[in-house]
Every structure is written in structure tokens, then in C-alpha cells.
Simulated assay, not measured.
Amino acid sequence: MSEVVIRKMEFTDVEQVLEVERASFTTPWTTDVFYQEIVDNHHAHYFVLEVDEKIVGYVGIWIVVDDAQITNIAIMPDYRGQSLGERLFGFVIQLLQHIGAKRLSLEVRVSNIAAQRLYRKFGLVPGGIRKNYYTDSGEDAIVMWVNLS
């Protein structure tokens, strides 16, 4: 059985995280954006998911006072369908509850039904639409949120 570990992202993880990013998103973040998030953004917290010591997923969260927002969450395509995204999202929920965050929100593509299904499992509900949110396609985003307390 494979060993799955979720841990805080380190500088040395950025290249592997970029592989996940590029495989998952049509407009992936750059190396500079990740370094800026890790070094300069004191609200940002990033975690990687490893399977047998290989990074196959990651999540980014901004925490401001008691509000949290998922910036990105992704699993390598070859590792999808194994509940790893659910495991990573569950980790985030537990972490946020542990530190006393009251709300969690995120944006998700209208077309990303699989992700919406996952978020609903954790109690997130649609709260609105951001029109033309995604710059690559002009697709709308659904804002989803949940009260954690």
C-alpha cells in the first residue's frame, strides 16, 4: 500500500508543485508566484500531498483573521479518482477548525462538476457567481463557502 503524507510546502518543493500546477490548470501559476506566496504573503499557507515521497497534489490557503480562502487545490491527473483530493481537502478543513477559522470560501469553474461535488461533501454551498472570472476562457466561477464554527 502506498504511503500518503500531507505536509507544509518547502521552497525545494516548488518545481514538483509546478508540475502538478501545469498538469492541472490552463493558466498555471509561475515559479515567481509560488515563491512570492511562500516568502512574502504572511496570510498564505501551502501544503503538499505526497504518495510514496512524490508530490502529486497541493493546496494553498489564505487565512485572514478568521476567514480562509482556498487559492488553489490540485491533484496530478494520473492520481485522480483515488480520493486524494478528498483527503487533502479534509486536511484543510481540520486545520482550519483547529486554528479557529470561522468561514472557508473558494472559487470553482462552473464546468468543474467533480470539484463542486467534492466541496459539497464538506458542506460548501454556492454563494454567488463571479462573471468571466477565468482569464483563459472567460468562464464564470461559482463562489462556494461554508461556516466552520
Rank of each mutant, 00 (worst) to 15 (best):
V65L: 15
L118Y: 04
E107L: 02
A101G: 09
L106G: 04
A44M: 09
L148R: 09
V125L: 01
G138N: 09
M76K: 10
S137K: 10
K54V: 13
D32R: 14
K102Q: 15
F47H: 13
T12D: 13
S24L: 11
I38F: 13
S137P: 08
H43S: 09
S2E: 13
L88Y: 07
I63T: 15
V59T: 14
Y133N: 07
Q94N: 15
V51D: 07
I73F: 01
R103S: 15
Q94I: 08
M1P: 13
D140S: 08
L106N: 03
L96K: 04
I38R: 14
T12P: 01
I73P: 01
E107F: 03
G127F: 00
A115H: 08
G90S: 10
V65K: 11
I142E: 07
Q97M: 11
K131C: 03
Y46D: 08
V39Q: 12
G60F: 02
G57E: 04
D13Q: 09
S2G: 06
I63N: 14
R130Q: 04
V143M: 00
V146Q: 12
A23D: 13
L104A: 04
I129C: 00
E139D: 05
G138R: 09
E19R: 15
I63G: 09
G81E: 11
L96D: 05
E50W: 01
E53G: 08
L118R: 03
T27H: 15
P77M: 09
Q36I: 15
K54S: 11
A74Y: 05
I142G: 07
G57F: 03
N147I: 00
T27I: 14
L148F: 10
V17W: 13
V17E: 12
V92E: 04
G138C: 10
I99N: 05
Y79L: 06
V48T: 10
D52Y: 02
D78G: 00
Q36C: 15
G127M: 00
D140R: 07
E107I: 01
E107G: 03
P126V: 02
R80H: 07
A44K: 05
L118E: 03
I113G: 02
S111D: 07
N41E: 06
L106C: 04
V59C: 14
V110P: 00
G123F: 00
H42M: 11
L88W: 07
E107V: 02
K131H: 07
Y119D: 05
M1F: 10
P126W: 03
F122R: 07
R109E: 00
P126F: 02
S24Y: 12
P77K: 13
N147V: 00
L106S: 05
Y119E: 05
Y119T: 05
V65W: 14
R87K: 15
H45F: 10
R117G: 01
A114Q: 02
I61D: 06
I55D: 11
N41G: 05
I113L: 12
F34C: 10
D67K: 13
V146P: 10
W29N: 11
V143L: 02
